[in-house]
Design a protein around this nucleic acid. Structure first.
Lengths: 178, 178
DNA sequence: TCACCCTATATCTGAATTGATATAGTTTCT
DNA sequence: AGAAACTATATCAATTCAGATATAGGGTGA
């Protein structure tokens, strides 16, 4: 329900083609929101039907034809409406953390390996985000937020098994009420 | 591709019904992985076809019949295989953070309101996680990780607009290479 | 020139996910 | 007794999403 709104957000400052939207989604909005081309084109078609964007076909001066999408006044209103709407807390479906929740199933030596590998994975992602050119304005702040969050996760993974501290399962809760 | 594995993880220690799986998924694995009943029943059926779980129908002594699922040796092997497999870094599709990335579209006064509201939402989620009974072992650690991450996000939201500091968009990057 | 990569469009399949709905017995409160 | 809430099963439709595939012109380097 929100990919169309994300696209409106990207179109806020300047018109763009579907391809360029996909690229700036991938580069700027980075890990906060992802989408494949196969989602973007249908989403643009829906936005167009709803009157939130206008399509202008650029004649093939040089190269293939390009479809340029421009946000309309209605589209701007819709984006603002969506922004003002309350957002759900991050649900962050996370395969890595979920696996750690089931670490009990693994013999102790392998636990450490898993934690160490996951920590490396997160580290690489942080580096990747730092190395790619930062976007402007609030987009840059948002990326910083994403990095902060990754760093918090990495600290936590470290606290679990970085230095072979708690590779054994923690003691059971003294009291468990149900 | 992983809900079945999560279910295997939940079945690791003791057999359970689909209903109870849904409940402990919701209570223990909490925000890291969610699923509705409508996903769980088909997933259990697939696990059964794959030979990863066995179904025992409990006769309706008192009450309706209950379908009890028990993990098999093959299922345990499969869970371990999945755990050992490298996990992708958290992609954390996050509507709240994404909205902040497009804050430019909103007039300054409304920006502050949005940030404040999102901060409250996160705070409530943190409190909710703290108040519900903590699970045991690594599941508890995983929840702590989820809370840590939420707290990092809250700090970041505060740094953006908590005390009306940066409600104006930050200065543009001096250099942007493309 | 040929191969390869990039830009650019778009569709198709299948899986994952959500939300709504249906059924039915049990317990608990009023 | 009646209503409401809980346990428990299950299906359906609609949407979202990922991955693969198809087509085609342009630029670059061997």
């Amino acid at each position: 329900m929100s990919l169309p709104h994300v696209l409106l957000g990207l179109l806020w400052t300047s018109p763009s083609t579907g391809y360029d939207l996909a690229r700036s989604l991938d580069e700027d909005v980075a890990p906060l929101w992802r989408a494949e081309m196969s989602q973007i084109y249908p989403a643009l078609a829906r936005l167009r039907r709803a009157g939130f964007v206008l399509l202008r076909v650029l004649g093939p001066r040089r190269g293939p034809r390009r479809n340029l999408y421009r946000i309309t006044a209605t589209g701007r209103r819709e984006l603002k409406r969506w922004l003002a709407e309350p957002a759900a807390p991050p649900s962050s479906k996370d395969e890595g953390l979920t696996k750690i929740a089931f670490l009990e199933a693994l013999p102790a030596p392998e636990r450490h390996a898993l934690l160490a590998r996951y920590e490396r994975t997160i580290g690489e992602e942080i580096r990747r985000l730092r190395d790619t050119a930062p976007p402007d304005g609030f987009r840059r702040e948002a990326r910083r937020g994403a990095v902060d969050r990754l760093e918090a996760t990495r600290r936590w993974v470290r606290s679990l098994g970085g230095d072979s501290a708690v590779v054994a399962p923690p003691a059971a809760a003294p009291l468990k009420k149900r």
